[in-house]
Design a protein around this nucleic acid. Sequence first.
DNA 1: GTCTATACCAGGATAGAC
DNA 2: GTCTATCCTGGTATAGAC
Lengths: 212, 212
Amino acid sequence: MGKMAADMTTRERIVEEALTLFSINGYKGTSVKNIADAVGIKDSSLYKHFKSKQEILDTIVETMRRHMEDMSDTFGLPSDDDLEEAASVYSGFDETMLVDFSKKIFLFYLKDSFMSRFWRMGNIEQYQNPEVSAVYRQLFLADSISYQTALFAEMIKEHIFTGEDAEVMAMYFYSPIFFLLSKYANEAEKEEEALGILEKQVREFYRIYRRR
Amino acid sequence: MGKMAADMTTRERIVEEALTLFSINGYKGTSVKNIADAVGIKDSSLYKHFKSKQEILDTIVETMRRHMEDMSDTFGLPSDDDLEEAASVYSGFDETMLVDFSKKIFLFYLKDSFMSRFWRMGNIEQYQNPEVSAVYRQLFLADSISYQTALFAEMIKEHIFTGEDAEVMAMYFYSPIFFLLSKYANEAEKEEEALGILEKQVREFYRIYRRR
DNA sequence: GTCTATACCAGGATAGAC
DNA sequence: GTCTATCCTGGTATAGAC
C-alpha cells in the first residue's frame, strides 16, 4: 500500500506480487515464473534480486514482522506502554463506540491489503512454513487476545465494565471477530452481512458487561 | 477409523494415507509417489485404483460428505428432526453438563482422526479446491452455528436459558471453540491448556444465560 | 539488471510384461 | 493388480551475452 508501482523498486514489486500470488495459490502453487510475469520481467531476471523462491517468502515474513510492530499506530490503538491512558480514553465509552471499535479491528484485518493477504497466506501455509506459522499465530491468535485482555483488565479496574476475568471477556470479544474473518475473508461482497452479525454480537457483549 | 490396515482394501488405504499426507503437506505438497510409498505399492500401481491424483481428493471429499451426514450420531447429538426432544433431554441441564457438552464437541473436532485431518486439510486447501472449501465451510462454519442456533432457540422457548437471540448465543458458544481449534489443532500436547480455557468460557456462558 | 538458452530434476500419467 | 520402463511437462536455478 501507499506506494504506487512506479515508485517501487523491482525488488519491492517482486515481494508485493509474490504475496498476492502466495495468498491466492499458496507457496507451492505459485511458480517463480508466475511472480516474474506479474512483475513484468523474465523468471531468470528475478534471481538477480533474490537467490531463491524461499528467500522471497522469508522477506515477506520479515516485512510482516516489521509491519506488526507499528500495527498499534495503523490501528489507531494505544501502545502497550500506556494502557492506563488507553482506558481513560475509553472511559466515556458507550455502546456505539464499542461497536465502532470492533468494526475497525475487523475491517482492518479484512481490508488492509497487507493484513488480508497475510491472513490468507497464513491459513494456507501455517502447517508448512514454521516462520509463517509463528508470525501468523502471534498476530491473529496470541497478540489480539493478550492486548484485549490487558485493555479489558484496565477497564474493569476503572469500573467502566464489570467482569471477573478479563481474558474470558477478551475471548468473547475477539473470537467472533476471528470466526467472521475465517468465514468472510474470501467473500468480500458479503462484508455488510458480516458487519451486521458483528454488530449484534458486540451489542450483546456491551449489554452483558456494561457497568450497571 | 475402526478398520485395521489389514481389513482395508488397497483403494481404502490409498484414501486413508492420502488424507493424512494432504493434511500435513497439502495437496500440491504431496506427490502420488508419497501416497504410494505410504501404502506400500509403486506409484504406477495406484493408477489402477484411481485415474488421477485429483480423483483421490474428490473421493476424500465425498467420504467426508457422507461422514458428515451421520455426524449427529457420532456426536451423540440428536438429529435436526427431533429438536424438541433434544431440548427436553437437556431440560435437566446444569453447568457441568454444558461444560461436558462443549468439551465433547471440541475434542471430537480435535481428536476424531477423520475430522482433525479434514480440519487441517480444509485450512490448507480452502482457497484452492472449491469442493474442499464447500464441505469445510459447511462443516466448521455453517452447520455448527445453525445447529446450535436451533438448539438454543428451543432451550429459550423451554425456559431453560434466558436470551433474546439464539444466533448470538450460538456464536458466543461456538466461536471460542472455533478459535481454540485454530490455535491448538497443531499442538496436541497442549490439549489440557485448551480444555481449561474452554471450561472457563463455558462457565461464563452459563452464568450469563442460565435461567434466573 | 535484463534477456535467451539451457541444465537438471521431480511430478503426473501411460504402456506393456508378468 | 502389481511391477519396470518411459514419456512429457513444468518448475527451480544457472551461465553468459548485451
